[in-house]
Design a protein around this nucleic acid. Sequence first.
DNA 1: ATAGAATCGGAGAGCTCTCTCCGTTTGTCG
DNA 2: CGACAAACGGAGAGAGCTCTCCGATTCTAT
Lengths: 199, 199
Amino acid sequence: MGDDHSAARPLRADARRNRERVLQIAQEALASDGLTISFDEIARRAGFGVGTVYRHFPTKEALVEAVLLGRVERFVADARALATAEDAGRAFFGWFTTVVEQAAANQALCDMLESGSGMALRPGSTLADDFAAALARLLTRAQRVGAVRGDLEARDVHDLLRGCLAAERRARARGGAVRMAEVICEGMRAKSSAPPPTF
Amino acid sequence: MGDDHSAARPLRADARRNRERVLQIAQEALASDGLTISFDEIARRAGFGVGTVYRHFPTKEALVEAVLLGRVERFVADARALATAEDAGRAFFGWFTTVVEQAAANQALCDMLESGSGMALRPGSTLADDFAAALARLLTRAQRVGAVRGDLEARDVHDLLRGCLAAERRARARGGAVRMAEVICEGMRAKSSAPPPTF
DNA sequence: ATAGAATCGGAGAGCTCTCTCCGTTTGTCG
DNA sequence: CGACAAACGGAGAGAGCTCTCCGATTCTAT
């Protein structure tokens, strides 16, 4: 287990400051260099000895989660907020697009969302389940109103999201203008020739 | 440089046999485990000392290229063969789908096609250029007959291909039935409401 | 100010990976 | 068959990474 007994004993003032700084630098380092950046390198950039960083975050995984889990929770919250939106199709496509656009700006977040067997967000964690559930709900509603192809399962969309993330990130790296999410959303859209079975 | 002076001195009989075996095992190992598999592990699976494998392929990269470059060349050749096909739209979508379906069965090939900055197929190599050129040609023709959205550039399609590969591979790993290539092709398709400018 | 606890720093253990080196084994050819 | 070049095997060098340990330092409460 870690070292931060939340309520028990409050951190010393300098320790708290340092912890914040590590979080801050780690955030930037992960965003620009992704999950593969080394712990040593993060410590170096923050100007601390690696021992200090380990004192605050017992493993690399713990640090990554501290930096990124909030982002994913945000996506889940967004999805829940949209779960009762009036236009289910717009809600689904909008959420999908938002996730892609925001995540694409953060290398490590992409790595995490894409990886699957990678670092955090491994299946089994509550967050991964929540994410999947939120996505599934949005999808089902959108399919019910005929906005999305009926043959797509939540897992398919999850995989498409990952693929889209990979594409978008690359496109962005070279300054491409086309939004990959738009193309892929178009692909998921139900063929409008068949009117929605509104019953 | 390597150790195989092509024409100069023919390999000893046992050496040639061993080289073939290494190639064979490496092929299987890379297909199932991807580019991250270690050289030691490949040697072990083939039943050779690691020194022997290095004798035939001076770096890991050389081995990977020996195993995979042929596959990519095949894709380029396919694209060239389709460059004069009657139905440009069908040619483009068919090729895209074929590449995805075939590559998805080979982990290392995916890694290579996806990576960009990864191992082989790095920009600058002739093959990478050929691949890009072949793709561009197919795309341009398909756009000219109004089969593909006009706002997509070759690079966009390249990135979409990579994303599609990632998605397809994951879907396949869990036995998913939806073909990701089909969804993404649908997204690239020009809206049929606007008839092709056939002039 | 000072004792004592909390925190820091960074050397280094232990692991994995790529690649080298050279003593040993094996094929080939007169 | 015997000599000699070719090929093999695998220990280990060197680099990088995660994580540990503990003496040195800094804060804080009195």
